[in-house]
């Protein structure tokens, strides 16, 4: 009798989780459509639809807007949001700390410093400034994560060490970036500042392809470790006793999280809040089971970015409000509402 009760409860939980995942997936599709339909030129919806079906080779204004501006931005939102959500959930899980995120671990500020260096020195690749900026941002984000990993490994990869090393890195690179900004001329300093806001004007089909590929590869990679990660959330000892090589799992997850973050922010700039909020929203709704938590975090990341993009377009008119600013403005209320609705903060 008791067994059947347990099974029933488990089934109810699984059903609830599945409903949340499917529901948010539907929400994602709706937001993608909304993002494609909304823009300062307010092309009629049927025009957007016919332009989408006509393909990218038309010579009309609608084609230029839908295929060259809106679609790359929408895809960037999906991939960047998903990447940050995934990176965030991994970092939180391996640090066993709800405050950890790509942002607090200094990965984002490393990327920002790399970008600032490129802008300051005029470093470009094949004569293209944004490409040089993206590549340096990527390299520095990777460098930061390697440094944190080295420190962590020397100290046995304890969660406190990882977090502390990350916070220290964050301060260090923020200071370096500020130094460059101070040294730079007014117009260059303004360029650096604008990079740190995270703007969708920098999205292009190239950035979509890069962040999309990284996301897919890392997502497939992480599915092999869901059980180990779930074990790790109970406790280090539990995971070890279940035969999980905790150090190796942490290393792999940490490095793939860095890669995801670098891929996400290198092109469009710093987007801080998604990596922290998306996993929390997901956790509040589906719990700790990584099989549900990971996809839910990914979806919530995309949802947040799309919501921010739509909000920015609605309030911005013809101007371009940096999406990085709006993500926090949209993300904070989202997290608060969830917090208020949940009885207890785990």
């Amino acid at each position: 009798m008791a067994d059947r009760d347990g099974a029933a409860i488990y089934q109810a939980i699984v059903r609830k989780r599945a409903i949340v995942c499917i529901g948010s997936l539907i929400g994602l599709v709706l937001l993608v459509l909304a993002d494609l339909m909304i823009g300062p030129s307010w092309i009629p919806i049927h025009d957007v639809v016919t332009t989408l079906f006509d393909g990218p080779n038309g010579e009309t204004t609608s084609t230029a807007i839908v295929w060259s501006v809106r679609l790359p931005m929408t895809f960037t939102c999906i991939f960047v949001g998903a990447s940050l959500g995934l990176a965030g959930v991994k970092v939180q899980t391996i640090c066993n700390n709800p405050l950890a995120s790509p942002y607090t671990l200094g990965l984002t500020s490393g990327a920002a410093f790399g970008a600032a260096t490129a802008i300051f020195t005029g470093f470009s690749i094949a004569g293209i400034l944004w490409l040089g900026t993206a590549v340096l941002a990527f390299i520095f984000a990777g460098g930061v994560s390697l440094a944190i990993y080295m420190v962590g490994k020397m100290k046995g990869m304890s969660t406190i060490t990882i977090i502390l090393a990350g916070i220290v890195m964050n301060f260090f690179f923020v200071a370096l970036q500020q130094l460059l900004q101070y040294k730079a001329s007014a117009e260059v300093a303004q360029l650096i500042a604008s990079w740190t806001f995270g703007s969708l004007t920098r999205s292009s089909w190239t950035s979509v392809a890069v962040s999309g590929c990284i996301l897919v590869v890392c997502a497939i990679f992480v599915t092999r470790y869901v059980w180990q990660l779930t074990a790790l959330t109970t406790s280090e000892e539990n995971a070890k006793s279940l035969g999980v090589d905790t150090e190796s799992v942490r290393l792999k997850m940490f490095m793939s999280a860095s890669l995801l973050t670098a891929g996400a922010v290198s092109f469009i700039g710093t987007v801080g809040f998604v990596g922290l909020v998306a996993p929390h929203c997901a956790r509040l709704l589906v719990g700790e089971d990584q099989r549900y938590l990971i996809p839910a975090s990914v979806i919530f990341g995309s949802l947040l970015m799309l919501a921010a993009s739509i909000t920015a377009k609605l309030i911005g008119g013809g101007s371009m409000i940096p999406v990085g600013i709006v993500t926090s403005l949209v993300g904070v209320p989202a997290l608060f509402i969830l917090l208020m609705k949940t009885r207890r903060w785990e």
């Binding site: 030129s41 501006v69 604008s194 703007s199 008119g317 013809g318 101007s319």
Partner: peptide, 15 residues
Amino acid sequence: QIEKYGSLNPEYVIA
């Protein structure tokens, strides 16, 4: 669209 100075939305420029 902007106060004094700022970036315009690419879509706005094209439209």
